[in-house]
Each structure stands twice: as structure tokens, then as C-alpha cells.
Amino acid sequence: MEMETNLSEEGGVSRVYEIGYLIVPTVAEDSLDKVVGEIRSSIEKAGGSFIAEGAPSLMRLAYDMTAREGDKNVDYDRGYFGWLKFEASPESAIALEESLRTNASVLRHIVFRTVREDTRAKIKAPTLREVKTPRTTLAAPRREEEVSAPVSEVDLDKALEDLTTE
């Protein structure tokens, strides 16, 4: 994958980064904006420009994560996952990582270099699955639907009796 590196007007390099973060579930839904705002402002302060963003949403974690809160460990099985894509200098990316690390409401974060284009696959999962068509169903001719006339109870009983007596 070709990573983008552009020279900005000041002569410094500018690269495309993406950050993913997990916010602890104890944060109230309406104060999420505040936490995200903190992250955004630390990027803006460093002179970064946003490319794309995914709003944090509460999700179940694939495994429990332990966080140190005060002097005890707390296990979380869910968190608000959100992401941000932006362009900034390598120095500001390091500074951002530091600010995320010290942010107590960020359970976990990831920063990595990426490309400007949208990297998410356009195709939904079900269409990705290979459809296996067994040969037999294709080869076998469709059986013509049998026309079944309504059978009376008496006829049915009689037919059953014939079968059982044999």
C-alpha cells in the first residue's frame, strides 16, 4: 500500500493518519462529544486537517479489557468505538498519541499511517460469501407439481387400513 507524504507550505512533511479509540462505557452518551472534542482539538492545535470521521458508538468488545482506575483494575466488556482520519506532521502525530495515552476516558487507542481514500470495503458481507450451488440441484429436472385433490377422511382411513392389513 502506497502511503502518502506531502510537503506542506512550511516545508515540513505531512502525512495521512488514522486514529481509532475506545472510550470507557462509564462516560455518559451526551458527554461523548466532549471527549471527542478533546481529541479533535489536540489534532487541530497541531495543525492537522480532518479527512473523515466515524462517530463513537457503544459496542461489545470481543474480550474484556482491563483499565487502571485510580489504584484498582476495572474490567470493561464494552466501549464506545470511534475513529478519525486526518493529515498532519509526524511530530504532531506523536504528540496526539501522547495526549490520548494520558486521557483517562480513552480506554484504548491506535494511531497508524493510511491513505487518503476511503479504505472501507463497499460490499456488504453477505455478498462476499461464495454461493455454493450443488451440482445435483442444477442437474435434476424440476419435478412437476403433483395435483392433489382433497382427500376425504373416510378414503384416507380406508387406504390406511388396506396398508396395515397386508
Partner: peptide, 8 residues
């Protein structure tokens, strides 16, 4: 698919 995203 050109890019593989960890969110997918």
C-alpha cells in the same frame, strides 16, 4: 477491494 480496513 484495494484496501483492507481494520474496521471491516
Amino acid at each position: 477491494i484495494q484496501h483492507v480496513d481494520y474496521k471491516d
